[in-house]
Simulated assay, not measured.
Amino acid sequence: MNTLVLSARRAAAALACAAALVSVAACGNASGGTDAASSARPSAAAKGSPGAASNGLEKLAAKEIYNNSRQANADAGSFREQMTREDAKSDLRISATECAGSVEMAQRGSFEIVHKGDDVWASLDASLTKWVNSQFGLTLSADTWIHGTPTHPLMKGFVSWCHTEQISDPDTAGANLNPAKGKVTVVDGQEVVPVSISGKDETVTWYAATTGEPYYLGQDSSRDDMPDITFSDFGQPVGAQKPSGPVQEAPQE
């Protein structure tokens, strides 16, 4: 394998490492850890009226709430995921086969991404382009769409931020995850039931809607280095399309 391909693989690993922190499952918490994870507030698109008929979610055990709310998001087929973390933020629309939006990484730069089926396009700003080129010996051009497949050693680093597995293979509570169920409350006008875990003086809480569809609306964590996430726009098309403008093919494998 030539040096260029090795560099592309290293770049992908670095980008994927940053992206992994977006997902509770990717960090190992959902399968049994007690580290805190993330935060959210339901958006207007997911709101239900306080006092509306209950969907019955709050009557279930904590693990069932966890599982059912994630399945409800998957069943919607698509949603908008907005994430913020101390060193990154993203705004992505996601389905099982599509993803479109933007990612910003502190001290590195930002990129736009479009993922549709077997195609991925990423447009890096000047700062991120310079960082990737200098760190990994590549010759990417700023503000040019880089094109490749989701399995390409470089492109999979960008597409790993999309977490399309939330639709195709939604997370479930592992045997070692023992969440506690809280009382139904209202967050930003939406009735929710909180489910939380605590450990090492840290707490992570998940919010699931108790009226309308039992969507998983977001997470709240006490850790600054883990993401705050809000889910909304359930079932709305991602609408990923091949971008216009100059395109540069990703380094050959």
Rank of each mutant, 00 (worst) to 15 (best):
77 G>S: 04
53 A>N: 03
25 A>G: 08
28 G>A: 05
19 A>P: 05
39 S>E: 05
55 N>M: 07
32 G>P: 02
100 A>K: 15
60 L>Q: 06
82 Q>R: 15
97 T>H: 11
26 A>H: 04
23 S>I: 03
52 A>L: 06
94 I>R: 10
79 F>W: 07
8 A>R: 00
103 V>Y: 02
48 G>R: 09
69 S>M: 08
15 L>Q: 12
98 E>L: 07
79 F>G: 02
14 A>Y: 13
95 S>F: 02
80 R>S: 14
19 A>I: 09
62 A>N: 10
69 S>A: 15
92 L>N: 01
51 G>Q: 01
42 P>L: 10
53 A>P: 04
32 G>V: 01
33 G>F: 09
60 L>F: 02
37 A>Q: 11
5 V>Q: 13
22 V>C: 04
37 A>P: 01
19 A>W: 05
96 A>Q: 10
59 K>Q: 14
36 A>T: 06
7 S>K: 12
79 F>Y: 15
70 R>H: 15
90 S>H: 07
79 F>H: 09
56 G>P: 02
41 R>C: 10
68 N>M: 09
19 A>E: 09
6 L>M: 10
26 A>C: 12
100 A>V: 15
20 A>D: 08
69 S>I: 03
55 N>P: 07
35 D>E: 08
7 S>R: 09
49 S>A: 14
87 D>K: 12
47 K>R: 15
37 A>R: 05
51 G>I: 06
84 T>N: 08
71 Q>V: 13
53 A>V: 11
57 L>C: 08
6 L>Q: 14
34 T>E: 04
87 D>M: 13
15 L>M: 14
62 A>C: 11
85 R>H: 07
60 L>S: 01
62 A>H: 08
92 L>Y: 02
66 Y>V: 06
77 G>Y: 02
61 A>H: 09
9 R>W: 09
40 A>E: 03
17 C>E: 14
37 A>C: 13
27 C>N: 05
63 K>C: 04
53 A>F: 03
54 S>V: 13
25 A>S: 11
54 S>P: 03
64 E>W: 00
70 R>E: 12
25 A>N: 05
94 I>V: 15
12 A>K: 00
74 A>K: 06
57 L>G: 02
49 S>K: 13
103 V>C: 03
51 G>K: 07
16 A>D: 12
35 D>H: 10
10 R>V: 03
52 A>P: 05
